[in-house]
């Protein structure tokens, strides 16, 4: 009886968590940070990392008291540990797979990608430590994310979650921008680079 229950819990935890579990937990994250006197926004840590590295000598934008941001750095270290726990201790017998729609698989195959429904990894194989193309994609994509997040005043957590929840028009404009950029990359640039 208890063993069957434990198995059921294990099965529930190892499946893809549905949107109606993940969305409320993200809202709870935002609420808890507010209760602890902080604001939910992950990309601020990138600015903090610049400040810690001495970027304040080059630009006043980085002259901040980064010690006030250590709580947020702790939060992302927690995220990293959470990723480790989920990837290594919470996967089912199939390992860590992404369960995307047949339509997306077909679209990616049409782009020439070697993907098979039922065996889609969490991260595509063209991203790795070993190839020059992977370094180029990760560096340039990361650069765009970092530059765009600070220019636009926030990322998905700061604008799409916190900002939209607080009915901020600037956040709606930024989220529309996220989609303009994402759609342009997906439909205009991907056919050129893949």
């Amino acid at each position: 009886m208890t063993l069957a229950f434990a198995t059921q819990v294990q099965e529930f935890v190892s499946q893809t968590w549905p949107w109606y579990v993940a969305g409320p937990i993200i809202a709870l994250t935002m609420f808890l940070l507010l209760y602890f006197g902080k604001e939910f926004g992950v990309s601020s840590n990138l600015r903090t990392m610049c400040s810690i590295g001495g970027a304040g000598k080059v630009s006043d934008f980085f002259k901040i008291d980064w010690k006030n941001q250590l709580w947020n750095m702790t939060f992302v270290v927690g995220g990293l540990i959470g990723g480790y726990i989920a990837a290594n201790f919470m996967s089912g017998s199939e390992g860590n797979l992404a369960h995307i729609s047949d339509a997306t698989v077909a679209d990616l195959q049409a782009l020439g990608m070697d993907v098979k429904q039922g065996a889609i990894p969490m991260v595509p194989e063209f991203l790795n430590w070993n190839t020059a193309s992977s370094w180029a994609i990760l560096l340039s994509g990361g650069f765009l994310v970092g530059f765009g997040a600070r220019y636009g005043g926030g990322c998905t957590s700061g604008h799409a979650i916190s900002g939209l929840s607080n009915l901020q028009l600037p956040s709606l404009i930024a989220v529309i921008g996220f989609f303009i950029g994402g759609l342009a990359m997906t439909f205009l640039i991907f056919p050129l680079i893949f």
Partner: peptide, 19 residues
Amino acid sequence: YILGGTIFGLGWALIGACP
């Protein structure tokens, strides 16, 4: 917001990850 957001979106779709 529109320019920064668009640049962010280009990177988000390329590497499939936000911060």
